[in-house]
């Protein structure tokens, strides 16, 4: 464990908690893409099946359980409890265009052709594009609530910190996982224009509104 991975995990946890609290406190999921949250729940489900097969550490197991629990709770709040506030008209990204290619790629490019490894690879590839429905929804509505931008900032920051973690681990431990690194680079690049808007607008107290 190194500081970059730890702050990355905490940034990820912060994003998940911010979103869950935003929906719970405001009793509304306006501006939130339910499709992205479904994809994240799928990412955690397919990645953390090793909860049943191997124990790494209390930290590892507890964080995985928290991530899975919060992501399912978020999906429940969006599609059940606060369904009336779900903005389905703007959450129209065709997720099958993500899941099918990612599913195919995870069969073609993986470290080992075993069920757990293919599911892990699927979750890594899927996570790199899972935010697209949310970014697409913001581009359609032309704006985002400030709390939603903080959620996206921490979510994007987490994988950027993981990239530094992988540089650190390559240099000090000789650890290198090409699949995770390539997917992580793609994932972080997708946030770049959002990061620019976040720094130039939200951090200056303005509302995030895209040129419609």
């Amino acid at each position: 464990m190194n500081i970059f991975r730890l702050t990355g995990d905490l940034s990820h946890l912060a994003a998940i908690i911010i979103l869950l609290l935003k929906i719970w406190k405001t009793r509304s999921c306006a501006g939130i893409s339910g499709k992205s949250q479904l994809l994240f729940a799928l990412v955690f489900t397919t990645r953390y099946l090793d909860l049943f097969t191997s124990f790494i550490s209390l930290y590892n197991t507890s964080m995985k359980l928290i991530y899975v629990a919060c992501s399912y709770a978020t999906v429940y709040l969006i599609y059940m409890k606060f369904k009336a506030t779900y903005d389905g008209n703007h959450d129209t990204f065709r997720v099958e265009f993500l899941v099918v290619p990612v599913g195919g790629l995870s069969f073609l490019v993986n470290h080992d052709f075993s069920p757990l490894e293919i599911l892990w690879t699927f979750s890594i590839y899927l996570e790199s594009v899972a935010i697209l429905p949310q970014l697409f929804m913001i581009s359609k509505t032309g704006e985002a609530e400030t709390i939603t931008t903080h959620y996206l900032f921490f979510l994007g920051l987490y994988r950027a910190l993981y990239l530094i973690n992988w540089i650190w681990r390559y240099y000090f431990e000789g650890f290198f996982d090409l699949i995770a690194v390539v997917a992580g680079v793609v994932q972080t690049i997708l946030y770049c224009d959002f990061f620019y808007l976040y720094v130039t607008k939200v951090l200056k107290g303005k509302k995030l509104s895209l040129p419609a």
Binding site: D9, S54, I56, M63, K64, H111, D112, Y162
Partner: peptide
């Protein structure tokens, strides 16, 4: 083959 490193990352 690529020896499978234990997946210790989240």
């Amino acid at each position: 083959a690529f020896e499978l490193m234990e997946k210790d990352e989240l």
